[in-house]
Amino acid sequence: MAAKPNAKAKAWVVFDRIVALAAPDGAHSNPWVKSPDGKLRFEPDYNTLVQLLGVPLFLKAGTQSGVPALALDVWLSYELRRAGFGSDQVWPRPVHPRILPASVTSLLEDLPIKMQQTLAERVKKRASIPGVTSSSASILGKNYLKQVDVIITDWATGPELLISTKRMDSSYGKNAPNRVEESYGDAKNLRLRHPLAALGFMFGLRSDILQKEPGTAAWLFDLLAKLGREDDAYHATCLVLMEYSDEAAIPDTGEDAPADGVLEPGPGPELGEAEELPEPEAESDVDRDIAQLPKVRILEEETPEELAPGRFLAAMVTRVLDATPVNMHEEARRRRASPEFR
């Protein structure tokens, strides 16, 4: 299937169905597990991740479409909901609109039923409402606005969690230095204005780099780990090492991802730009697409422990809970205090 101008809108339909199937009726599994020796760990849902990662491969959606990296954003927001944060707290939300301020949600809930239904329907049918809803969000750092991919924020608290994601499936030697340089600058920019927010960085990388450019892989792994150790950079960093066949590979157009770092000031830039609305599809049709998704495998054994997704998610959640009073994020605290024993 060839990539289309509305590749992201199509991808959202499949992403949403995968996430809905993983959490029937909004009931998420508890990711916290305690081993016999008493160690608490966050166990990611890799089955859902590999399905999400298969979507851009199925759609043949290249880097310029934004779909490959979006798969990581959707998974992270899903994992944070598994950790106990609300569907409206974590952006992107599991339904349109992806960005909806908590104050707007509270207003909708407080309106008379008829008015509530009318307004909610209007919000759902608009691709975006300037200054209110959008598909992506940006946060002001020390010196400039930065698009951040996964966010927990509210006007009363300010940003509590900010995670940026990048993905690289080819041209490693050409693109890796730029990705690392951008990420380090973004970390400094955000950390200096929001020192209490949990600040993280996730990097999705195709595993063939281990065979094609092992030196670049070792260099990149080392720098990613160092990005998560410095006092003025990220609190934690993460590597998702993806293995899939050449037949399923995303076409390499030679173009890098569009820049999303420094945004011009102006009306409503904090809510990003509008996108096409996803077109509704029959669940049976979407399920058929899901059944045809290319196979993806996460190479956990090849991922350095310091960059493991489970360690990263545990660090992000713990950072948010440690920086807030005990009467906030109560469900997230309850889940962490009630792990499964394995």
Rank of each mutant, 00 (worst) to 15 (best):
A3F: 09
F15D: 05
D25T: 07
G26H: 00
V33L: 08
V33D: 07
P36T: 10
L40G: 06
F42Y: 14
T48H: 08
L49R: 09
L53E: 11
V55C: 05
P56I: 00
L59M: 12
Q64R: 03
P68W: 01
P68F: 04
L72Q: 12
W75P: 13
R81T: 02
R82Y: 00
R82V: 09
F85K: 03
P97R: 00
I99E: 10
T105G: 15
L111S: 06
K114F: 14
L119A: 11
E121Q: 11
V123S: 01
S128F: 06
G131M: 10
S136F: 06
S138H: 08
G141Q: 00
Y144Q: 15
D154M: 01
W155M: 13
G158S: 05
K166V: 01
K174A: 15
K174F: 13
P177A: 03
N178L: 11
P195H: 14
A197H: 01
A198H: 08
F201L: 05
M202A: 15
R206Y: 02
K212N: 15
A217R: 00
L224E: 01
L224D: 10
L224T: 06
Y234N: 02
E243R: 15
Y244V: 05
L263F: 03
E264P: 14
G272C: 01
E279G: 01
A291M: 04
P294K: 08
P294D: 01
K295G: 07
I298C: 11
I298H: 10
E301C: 13
A314C: 07
T318P: 15
V320L: 10
L321Y: 00
H329K: 03
E330T: 12
E330I: 09
R334W: 07
R335S: 08
